[in-house]
Amino acid sequence: MPKTFLIDTTRCTACRGCQLACKEWHDLPANETKQRGSHQNPPDLNPNNLKIVRFHEYLDTKGDVVWNFFPDQCRHCLIPVCKDVADMAVPGAMIRDPKTGAVLTTEKTAELAPEDARAVIDACPYNIPRLDPKTKRLTKCDMCIDRVSVGMQPICVKTCPTGTMVFGEREEVLPVALKRLEKIKTRFPKAFLADMRDVSVIYLLADDKEHYYEYAAFL
């Protein structure tokens, strides 16, 4: 059974502890960013930010403000399309760790032709992988495989102060997710667990996916 994350967005305060901790653990340098009229910064995933919190705000039909936070990261799909596409071009460019279910890019992704790398990116239903122009490798969340393989939690989970993130064996996390959903539904009838059957990173969303991010859910 693979490892599974639950990301309960109804508990997220967008403190961005996860976003920062991810950078720190992976020792990634800061980008030079600008204020563009949004708190979402950097504006998108990039080779130096494998996880970012996305912000989305709107007025609902009653005229109340809704501000949704979406800590975006690789879903570590149970059947990763990206890996299949990469394998067709360069076998072993991407792997799925059988023990944890982590979907990982390897140094062989540098051997992918530009159009093949593009195809891998386009194949992802969640718009996750990014091409590092320096190393020519594909980059994305690695589930903190170095930590997880020695029994530690991914750094984003470890850092989260509000209980937004839960990490563990799939059979342990699924019941927690379903229980949380049941409770949340009393307040947010539209709430759902995004693509629960297909992914290892399950988002609990309280609102339509468009009100988080266009790629927040596939189905």
Binding site: R16, Q19, L20, K23, E24, P29, A30, N31, E32, T33, K34, Q35, G37, H39, N41, P42
Partner: peptide, 12 residues
């Protein structure tokens, strides 16, 4: 702290 400045870089 560059990583913090990255998240909120400028006065708004």
């Amino acid at each position: 702290v560059p990583n913090l400045l990255e998240t909120e870089p400028q006065l708004y």
